[in-house]
């Protein structure tokens, strides 16, 4: 098989059933299939307990699926080799806290068979990139949560893999840290790397992802391109017109203004009537101050999917 042409991640019919207490069975994943192409940023959205971490743990070999298969760059995840071209950040990561960040990254680099020279160079680069350089010699037991999260990111970057699997990468980070992570993900995309990251924060997905998958109750209920979702979610426009001083806002093309705010009048215009409305505005010689797109954002899309697939709706 030509590994170079293989998708970054290919999941086929993946299922996982956990055995609970009193022989109860919990279906954490139900026949999930998805593909992440090389160079793609894939956001994996789902509410808590939806099966995001279970999927990721199957991908990195921490748990074995009950059925189905998954491959990283064409190599089955059951083989240790599949992890050579992958970097993984666990949710709420924890590392040998008696080691310093530098020692830990050296340990990680050695498992990827990096040479001593390569390791020294990459350690310096990623520690600086993640703003851990000054703390690199200190044992990690003295690190803040955000610093530990950044060490987690550093260990995924150290061997410069092609595929990144990040479980809630922004959790525990302050706004500056979140911005840094987003910047890193965008940079990875620019360099043709693939990133698969789970989150329940839709804004993160909207800003950095090419594609999004939504998982609810162990079932992948939607996979689509982010821009398609955003485009299909356009519901109309909010048009702001300047009205001459002292005159009441007029009804234009049958649309009455929502509200008047000083010299501005706001009109909620449905998509289907937008052209007719604008023609009437031009004909009346009205002054357009602002046109805003009114659309359902990713959060609305996500919430509606969760609502539709919830067993308690």
């Amino acid at each position: 098989m030509n590994m170079d042409n293989s998708p970054a991640i290919a999941i086929e019919n993946l299922s996982k059933t956990y055995k609970g207490k009193k022989r109860a069975q919990v279906e954490a994943l139900k026949g999930m299939s998805l593909t992440v192409d090389q160079g793609e940023i894939f956001g994996f959205l789902g509410p808590n307990g939806a099966g995001k971490s279970t999927t990721i743990k199957c991908l990195v070999g921490l748990i074995q699926p009950t059925s189905g298969s998954a491959r990283i760059k064409g190599i089955p995840v059951t083989q240790v080799e599949s992890r050579r071209s992958m970097g993984y950040l666990p949710e709420n990561p924890a590392f040998y806290d008696y080691l310093s960040a530098e020692e830990y990254l050296t340990f990680v680099g050695r498992t990827y068979r990096m040479s001593a020279d390569q390791l020294t160079t990459r350690c310096r680069e990623v520690l600086r990139q993640l703003e851990l350089w000054d703390a690199r010699k200190r044992p990690m037991r003295g690190y803040s949560k955000g610093m530990v999260q950044r060490v987690g990111l550093a260990q995924t970057l150290i061997h410069d893999p092609d595929v990144y699997i990040l479980d809630e990468p922004m959790s525990g980070l302050d706004p500056i840290g979140r911005a840094l992570v987003k910047e890193i993900i965008i940079d990875l995309k620019r360099r043709g790397k693939s990133v698969f990251f789970s989150t329940h924060i839709t804004d993160d997905v909207e800003k950095v992802c090419d594609q999004v998958g939504v998982i609810v109750q162990g079932t992948l209920v939607a996979v689509d391109r982010v821009e398609t979702i955003l485009r299909s979610g356009v519901e109309g426009y909010q048009v702001h017109l300047r009205t001459p001083a002292g005159e009441p806002a007029a009804v234009i093309a049958g649309i009455t203004p929502d509200r008047s705010n000083g010299p501005l009048a706001e009109y909620a215009v449905p998509c289907a009537r937008f052209n007719a409305f604008m023609e009437a505005v031009n004909a009346a010689g009205a002054d357009v101050a602002l046109v805003e797109t009114k659309r359902r954002d990713l959060e609305d899309f996500f919430l509606s999917l969760v609502h539709d697939h919830s067993p308690h709706r």
């Binding site: 921490l62 050579r84 987690g152």
Partner: peptide, 12 residues
């Protein structure tokens, strides 16, 4: 302490 999550996901 969940160290195994990060260590066992390495190629070991």
């Amino acid at each position: 302490r969940r160290y195994t999550f990060s260590v066992l996901s390495l190629p070991i």
